[in-house]
């Protein structure tokens, strides 16, 4: 696959996530323009671009937090937005990490992790708690199991949020600017966890400007501007030889600091 996984519309083979000519408008604003993009199983794709470029909207469409107006979006073989697709069921296969963590403030770290497994996956409580403790240990928070979100730092909250997603044993993990709300010294602890998840072979789409992370684990970087995918390539290609003016301008801005 030369163009790093770009599939032709009409090609029958589908990836884990398949956008075909997807369009979306907010009122008159075309926030997604003719998006065609395919993500293979176990692939890690980093999405970057200036603010307002539609990158968050792109990944929010995948689990139906946003609805698409036009085109096809096929995730794990199921068509998003099709009335026949059980979105609630599909969402259990997709972990979503928010910029603002969105931990449940009335639940402890462990309860945050086990809530959906117990009530959605119907895993017995003891088993879910066992798994939850292991996951929290894995993200380095074995000692914070009974802490409430308000007692945790931003970096710790985001790691709990990642553990919360992993607790559902998803096939896909989506990250929406997971480190943007963090103080600089907390960014690496979250990125380390994300690298570990990527190395286990998770299919991931990550909206981020953390270029170190992209170089380390991404197979592909997608650059968006004004709702369209402007450029797509391996991290090396993209960072060393950006092809368009817009991507060069963007890179010069984010690499400056």
């Amino acid at each position: 696959m030369t163009k790093a996984g770009m599939t032709q519309p009409g090609l029958t083979k589908t990836g884990m996530i398949d956008f075909r000519d997807v369009n979306k408008w907010f009122g008159a604003l075309n926030v997604l323009r003719d998006i065609t993009l395919s993500v293979e199983p176990r692939e890690v794709v980093v999405v970057c671009g200036p603010s307002g470029s539609g990158k968050s909207t792109l990944i929010r469409c995948i689990n139906g937090l946003e609805t698409i107006k036009d085109g096809h979006l096929i995730v794990d073989g199921q068509r998003v937005g099709d009335p026949a697709t059980n979105m609630t069921q599909l969402r259990t296969e997709i972990g979503f990490v928010f910029q603002s963590f969105n931990l449940y403030p009335h639940k402890t770290a462990l309860e945050n992790v086990t809530l959906a497994p117990i009530h959605v996956r119907k895993i017995p409580r003891a088993e879910a708690e066992q798994a939850g403790r292991e996951l929290l240990a894995k993200v380095g928070l074995a000692d914070k199991v009974n802490a409430y979100p308000a007692q945790l730092s931003g970096g710790q909250q985001q790691r709990v949020a990642i553990a919360r997603c992993l607790g559902m044993r998803p096939k896909i993990m989506l990250f929406d600017e997971p480190t943007s709300a963090l103080d600089p010294e907390m960014i690496s602890e979250v990125l380390d966890v994300m690298v570990a998840v990527a190395e286990e072979g998770m299919t991931m789409m990550v909206v981020t400007h953390e270029m170190g992370f992209a170089r380390k684990v991404a197979q592909r970087v997608v650059f968006m501007d004004a709702g369209a995918i402007v450029e797509s390539g391996t991290p090396d290609e993209f960072f060393s030889h950006p092809k368009t003016d817009r991507s060069r301008a963007f890179l010069s801005k984010i690499l400056r600091h």
Binding site: N63, G64, L65, T88, Q89, L90, R91, T92, I94, G95, F96, F98, S100, F101, N102, L103, Y104, L115, A116, V120, A161, R164, C165, M168
Partner: peptide, 10 residues
């Protein structure tokens, strides 16, 4: 965000 997080977890 609370609602979105719970929607996202199915």
């Amino acid at each position: 965000g609370q609602v979105e997080a719970s929607v996202a977890s199915g």
